[in-house]
C-alpha cells in the first residue's frame, strides 16, 4: 500500500490528517477534560497507548477476521485494552484517575480509535500499523496539551497545576503561576473549550493557507513581470 511510507504516516497523524484538528474526532473527551494541561496530558497519553496497542493487535489478527464480523471484534479488542489501561491508571495514578473519571472508560467510544482500526490497521502490516497508532495518538495528545495549556493559562492563570498527580511529588515545582492574574472563568467552562478548539483549527488552517500561498508565489513571480503597455 502507498500508505506504508513512514514519513507520510507521521505527517498525516501529526498535521495533515490530525485526528482533532482535521478529522474532528473524539471531541467529547477533548472538550470535556482539557481544563488543565495535566488532565490533557493524562487523557492524551491514555488515548495514545490505546491507539498503539489496538492498532497492533488488529493488524495481527486482520487476516483471520472476516469482514462481516470485523466491527464487533474491533470493539471487543479496544474495550479490553481500555479496561487494562483504566485499571493500570487506577493503580498507579489514582488521583489523576479520579480527576479524569468517566472519560478514561469512554476512550472505548472514541471514534478516532475505531476509525484507525477500520481504515488503517486492518489493511496494513504490524509495523506501519503500530507507527500509525503512535503518530495519530501523538497528534491527538498535542492538541489536548495545547488546548489544556491555553485554557488553563487564560482560565485560572496557572500552567501545569497538579503536575504531581502525573509526575510524582518532585513535579510540584513545575506549576507556574502567572503573577496575580486570577483568570477568566469562561475559558475553563465548556464554552471556552469550543472557542479554544475553534481558534486552534483556525490557526492550523491559516498556517496551511500561508504555506500554500508561499508555495504558489514563485510560480506567480515568474509570470508577473509583464510589460506595462498602458
Amino acid at each position: 500500500m502507498a500508505q506504508n511510507n513512514f514519513a507520510t504516516i507521521a505527517r498525516d497523524g501529526l498535521w495533515n490528517n490530525n485526528p482533532a484538528l482535521v478529522q474532528i474526532l473524539g471531541l467529547c473527551p477533548l472538550l470535556a477534560v482539557t481544563n488543565t494541561t495535566i488532565n490533557g496530558i493524562g487523557l492524551g497519553v491514555a488515548t495514545m497507548m490505546t491507539l498503539v496497542v489496538s492498532n497492533g493487535i488488529i493488524s495481527l489478527i486482520r487476516n483471520w477476521v472476516t469482514p462481516e464480523i470485523r466491527l464487533p471484534v474491533f470493539v471487543l479488542v479496544i474495550a479490553c485494552i481500555v479496561t487494562v489501561i483504566e485499571l493500570a491508571m487506577n493503580a498507579y495514578f489514582h488521583e489523576l484517575y479520579n480527576l479524569l473519571g468517566i472519560f478514561i472508560a469512554l476512550i472505548v467510544t472514541n471514534c478516532n480509535i475505531i476509525a484507525r482500526a477500520e481504515s488503517f490497521a486492518s489493511r496494513n502490516p504490524l509495523l506501519p500499523a503500530l507507527f500509525d497508532g503512535l503518530m495519530m495518538g501523538t497528534g491527538f495528545l498535542l492538541v489536548l496539551v495545547a488546548l489544556g495549556a491555553m485554557r488553563e493559562m487564560i482560565g485560572s492563570g496557572t500552567l501545569f497545576a497538579n503536575a504531581h498527580l502525573m509526575f510524582g511529588e518532585s513535579a510540584r515545582a513545575l506549576t507556574i503561576r502567572l503573577g496575580d492574574y486570577h483568570g477568566m472563568l469562561l475559558a475553563i467552562l465548556p464554552p471556552g473549550a469550543f472557542i479554544g478548539l475553534g481558534l486552534l483549527i483556525a490557526l492550523k488552517n491559516a498556517i496551511d493557507r500561508r504555506r500554500a500561498e508561499r508555495k504558489a508565489v514563485p510560480a506567480v513571480a515568474v509570470a508577473a513581470p509583464e510589460p506595462h503597455t498602458a
Binding site: M184, L185, L186, A187, L189, P191
Partner: peptide
C-alpha cells in the same frame, strides 16, 4: 455574558 460568566 462573557464578562458575567468570567468575572462574576
Amino acid at each position: 455574558v462573557v464578562l458575567l460568566v468570567s468575572f462574576p
